[in-house]
Each structure stands twice: as structure tokens, then as C-alpha cells.
């Protein structure tokens, strides 16, 4: 068996096993264990990308996925500060069995489609095309053919960052503090300055 195929099977088995361990109710019950197993799975996938000569994506997978996104996940889990007794024992229900059935059905359908796609596949020889997947080639395409989508993605990231900050804000007006009616507002203004401010500041706090 060629080394390439052997590596593919090893990395693929690692990715599938760590993902499955993340989803099992025993090993992946607490969110922090699941997050760490998912990071392992992302490293295996980065290896698979490198094996398929996607140099840039393999590095991006580690920097962006295993680095940035999973750090965000672990940071939020830390911020929630869940105690062990807040993590529940999973229970089996009809809805979950139906969910498993749906996933199995989708897997079957996908395998069906793969049979058709893979039968006609013949890999292009990369020996004449040795810049394939490098930073230079992918970057060149990103800044020429995909110029507009690339700029739009930067806008999307900006919007997402601003949206995340607004959503995670501590005092969202409609969550924490009931909007005072005009009459109440008038009353608060009528009070002495110190009292009025204190009442407004702690108005809807519980």
C-alpha cells in the first residue's frame, strides 16, 4: 500500500474518531471536553488538506479553526462558568432516534451520489503544475477572479464582529431594563438630581 494512502487512512480515522468521541454522551458530555476533541479533529483535517496539496488551507485550518474559532468557543465556555452539576445526563427520546435516522438517511443518499461522481474521476497530474494550492497561486486568484467576494467577506466579518459585540452586551435595553413610560420619565426628571439618577440607573435591575 502506498504511503500516501496509508497516511490518508490514518488521518481520516483520527478525524472520524475524534469527532465521534466529541458527539458521544460519555466522552463529549461536558462542552469543554467536546471543544478539545474538536480541536484534535481539526488538526487531523489540516493534515488531510496538506496531503491533498492544499498548502494554504492546511495552515489556515490550524490558524483560523483550531486557533481563532476554537479559542472563542473555549473562552465562551469559560465565561459561562458552568458547574459540573449543571451538565445533564443525556436521555434517549423518540426525537433523538428520529434525528439519528435522518442523519443515516442523508449518509446513505450521499454515498449513493458519491458512487456516480467517483466512478468517472481521474486525477490531474500535478507534476507540471507545482504551484498548485500554494499561497502565491491561491492569493493571486483571490485578488483577481474573486476580488469582489473577497471584499464582501471582509464586510461580513466586520458586521459579524459588531453584531457579536452588540449581542453580548450586558445591558441590552430590551432585556434588562423595561422602557419607561413617558409619565414615569417625567416623574424621574422632576425629582432631585441625585435621587433621580440613582432611580434611573437601578430602574429595572433585579
Amino acid at each position: 500500500m502506498p504511503t500516501e494512502l496509508l497516511l490518508f487512512y490514518a488521518l481520516g480515522a483520527g478525524a472520524v474518531l475524534s469527532t465521534a468521541a466529541m458527539l458521544l454522551p460519555t466522552t463529549g458530555r461536558s462542552p469543554i471536553h467536546a471543544a478539545l476533541l474538536l480541536i484534535v479533529s481539526f488538526f487531523f483535517l489540516a493534515g488531510l488538506y496538506a496531503l491533498l496539496s492544499a498548502h494554504l488551507l492546511s495552515i489556515l485550518q490550524i490558524i483560523v479553526y483550531a486557533g481563532a474559532i476554537m479559542v472563542l468557543f473555549t473562552f465562551v465556555i469559560m465565561l459561562l462558568n458552568l458547574s459540573p452539576d449543571e451538565i445533564r445526563e443525556p436521555k434517549i427520546s423518540y426525537a433523538k432516534m428520529l434525528g439519528g435516522g435522518v442523519a443515516l438517511f442523508v449518509f446513505g443518499k450521499l454515498l449513493n451520489g458519491i458512487g456516480l461522481a467517483a466512478s468517472a474521476a481521474k486525477a490531474v497530474d500535478l507534476t507540471q503544475h507545482d504551484t498548485f494550492g500554494t499561497v502565491k497561486e491561491v492569493g493571486h486568484m483571490m485578488y483577481s477572479t474573486f476580488m469582489v467576494p473577497f471584499e464582501l467577506v471582509s464586510v461580513l466579518l466586520l458586521v459579524a464582529a459588531v453584531g457579536a459585540v452588540v449581542l453580548a452586551k450586558k445591558n441590552l435595553a430590551y432585556v434588562d431594563r423595561p422602557v419607561p413610560s413617558p409619565a414615569e420619565e417625567f416623574k424621574t426628571e422632576g425629582h432631585a438630581a441625585g435621587d433621580g439618577e440613582a432611580a434611573a440607573g437601578h430602574g429595572g435591575h433585579h
Binding site: L57, L60, Y65, L72, P149, V153, A160
Partner: peptide, 21 residues
């Protein structure tokens, strides 16, 4: 590869907003 790069960017945006929610 470029498309996969875009998916990674969208996943980052989705994770940020989802976790904020």
C-alpha cells in the same frame, strides 16, 4: 481552495454571532 477559504471566513462570522447569542 478560494471557496473553502470563504467558507472558513463565514464559519468564523457564524461562530462569533452564535456564541454571542
Amino acid at each position: 481552495h478560494v471557496l473553502a477559504f470563504f467558507i472558513i471566513a463565514v464559519a468564523a462570522a457564524e461562530a462569533a454571532v452564535g456564541l454571542a447569542l
